[in-house]
């Protein structure tokens, strides 16, 4: 494992790729944890973006342009493109990188497609740790492209320093999206396909909703950028707005705050998972469940009574208190 981590730190492409698979497959938890532990001291340098927005907004295409510009500034970029897994077959068709494929031969760009494997929230279960791998490997930017289904994609907000919300005129549900709270996710608002009818109207709608949001948050103005990814128009401007927004976050301490919140969530998450796993092991829930179901079904006991007792016994057993 030390070896794999060492290779990652040396930016070995295969090692990075395999590390991500290791995390995705969860075939060996100890190995996975050892890897992340080794990489942890080297994390925290990458700027992490999330790109979200409805299907058809042109996220991949826009991302392709951003990569182009970032490469011109000699920045290295890692992309995690998340697509849904089929709930029926468990398979997935991962096609996001198609739009970015001209960067395939550029060693400064690493694109990894990731299937959600049943994880909800617009990203995959492995996305958080994959960010760390890219971060430790020294990529300047790590960009997560979410599945793009809307308001359930809160998790991307927790994983990234900045969330770009890509909107596009003519999808017909703009106002609904705004009302439904998708707007809460975004730091930067990008109206793509700005040459289409309705782009300006969409912009004023976003401005209106943001004016409400900004008056509550009052700590920063959320930029709205107009782009046309296919025409390569407005990309440079959007990029400099993103960069200065990021600089603002970094300089007034909000970035550190954000990242601490992220760590807090991560710790809670790990704690919960681990406690669950341990408790499961001790209580042997899986094996005893059938018996319990029977008891509850026959009204011999109520669910709360049963579990308060079982857990109480367990805590006593391990000398809790």
């Amino acid at each position: 494992m030390q070896n794999l981590a060492r290779q990652v730190l040396k930016q070995d492409i295969r090692a990075i790729a395999r590390s991500i698979s290791l995390i995705e497959n969860e075939t060996d938890i100890t190995q996975k944890e050892a890897l992340i532990d080794t990489l942890h001291p080297h994390c925290g340098n990458a700027i992490v973006w999330g790109i979200t927005g409805p299907p058809g907004a042109g996220k991949s295409c826009l991302l392709d342009r951003f990569i182009e510009h970032l490469r011109q500034d000699n920045k290295t970029v890692a992309v995690i493109a998340v697509d849904p897994s089929s709930p029926f077959s468990g398979g997935a068709l991962l096609g996001d990188r198609l739009r970015m494929q001209k960067h395939a031969t550029d060693d400064g760009v690493f694109i990894r497609s990731m299937a959600s494997r049943g994880h909800l929230g617009g990203v995959a279960g492995a996305t958080a740790d994959a960010i760390k791998i890219f971060d430790a490997a020294g990529f300047d930017y790590v960009i997560i492209e979410t599945i793009g289904v809307g308001q359930t994609e809160i998790e991307v907000m927790e994983l990234s320093d900045i969330v770009l919300l890509v909107l596009v005129p003519g999808l017909g549900d703009e106002i609904q999206a705004l009302k439904a709270g998708v707007m809460e996710i975004g730091d930067i608002f990008i109206i793509n396909k700005k040459d289409l009818d309705g782009a300006d109207r969409l912009k004023s709608e976003v401005e209106y909703v943001l004016s409400l949001k900004d008056s509550i948050e009052s700590d920063s103005k959320h930029p709205i950028c107009m782009t046309s990814a296919t025409q390569n128009d407005g990309i440079g401007n959007a990029l400099s707005q993103i960069n200065s927004y990021f600089a603002g976050l970094r300089d007034d301490g909000r970035l550190a705050q954000k990242r601490k919140e992220r760590i807090e969530k991560e710790l809670k998450h790990i704690a919960t998972t681990k406690i669950m796993a341990s408790a499961n092991r001790f209580l042997n829930i899986d094996q005893r469940l059938n018996g319990w179901v029977e008891e509850v079904f026959q009204k011999k006991v109520s669910p709360y009574k049963l579990l308060n007792k079982k857990i109480g016994d367990f805590l006593q057993e391990i000398n809790w208190q």
């Binding site: 295409c61 068709l93 096609g95 198609l98 296919t230 390569n232």
Partner: peptide, 9 residues
Amino acid sequence: GEYQESIVL
């Protein structure tokens, strides 16, 4: 410029 294939899978 060049056209970029648009694919819906």
